[in-house]
């Protein structure tokens, strides 16, 4: 009956299992869809956009790597948005830490990322990308991005309890941001004045680190440093914001 870290992990896993089961309960393809989806996207976008790349041959790898990491953020935040609202009764009555709801949604997004990694692997093998030790950096990178998403998720989910239209606003924002972080069109094609700002954008940095690691086998220490700062600061801010308003949420729900 004691709540140790183990128990939290167990709860998060159970909640995550629930999310995944629910998500795929009604689809025939089930988890295969998680693999097919990025591949389909890659093919279509590859055909349309590869002309924009400086290196058209690399574009498929460029796109699918960047998109996979971008999708981690977008699904994590979009699903976490309603985390408190969906678990209303648990939120009030259960003794679980409230943070677990957010964490489980983010973890679900991470599990989905693992499934899309199969797609990534297929592409890498087909294209003949040589993977070297820098793949470890990707794991760190994904972890940092997750931390960042958790921070944002806390802020969004908390706000959603009070203002329901945050959901719509965030949907549109996600769509806009997707075009600001060089997922589709490489940054070299961005107007020069935007380079500096885009390179500070965490949502550009996380996919970019992964792309650098896969495509070139290198990584930029400065970029990694910025990534860490963004992740940690956002995470802490998110938690603080949630803690401040926790009681209000219980009242409101």
């Amino acid at each position: 009956m004691k709540y140790g870290i183990r128990q939290y992990i167990f709860v998060i896993r159970e909640l995550t299992a629930r999310e995944i089961k629910r998500k795929y309960a009604r689809s025939v393809l089930g988890i295969v869809w998680s693999v097919l989806n990025p591949l389909l996207f890659m093919i279509v976008i590859g055909i349309v956009f590869s002309g924009y790349s400086l290196y058209p041959e690399k574009y498929p790898v460029y796109f699918i790597t960047g998109r996979t990491l971008w999708i981690l953020f977008s699904t994590a935040t979009m699903t976490s948005l309603t985390a408190f609202e969906d678990n209303k009764s648990l939120f009030i009555k259960a003794k679980v830490k409230r943070e677990t709801f957010i964490l489980s949604r983010n973890y679900t997004a991470l599990v989905n990322l693992w499934f899309s990694c199969i797609a990534l692997l297929i592409v890498y093998i087909c294209v003949g990308v040589k993977i070297n030790w820098t793949i470890i950096i990707i794991i760190i990178d994904v972890f940092l991005e997750l931390l960042f998403s958790i921070g944002i998720s806390f802020i969004l989910a908390t706000s959603y309890v009070f203002y329901k239209d945050i959901k719509n606003i965030w949907n549109h924002l996600i769509f806009i941001i997707a075009h600001m972080v060089a997922v589709f069109v490489p940054i070299e094609r961005y107007p020069k004045n935007l380079h500096q700002i885009t390179q500070m954008n965490p949502l550009y940095i996380y996919p970019n680190i992964a792309r650098q690691c896969v495509l070139y086998g290198t990584f930029n220490k400065k970029e990694l440093f910025i990534a860490i700062i963004w992740a940690v600061v956002t995470f802490i801010l998110g938690i603080i914001y949630f803690k401040i308003r926790e009681n209000e949420i219980v009242k409101k729900i």
Binding site: W114, L121, Y124, I125, N132, W133, I135, Y216, G217
Partner: peptide, 17 residues
């Protein structure tokens, strides 16, 4: 996944940017 990754990693051929 880790095994596949390890197999693929065999190459230490770091290519630059």
């Amino acid at each position: 996944f880790a095994i596949i990754a390890a197999v693929v990693i065999w190459s230490d051929d770091a290519y630059a940017e």
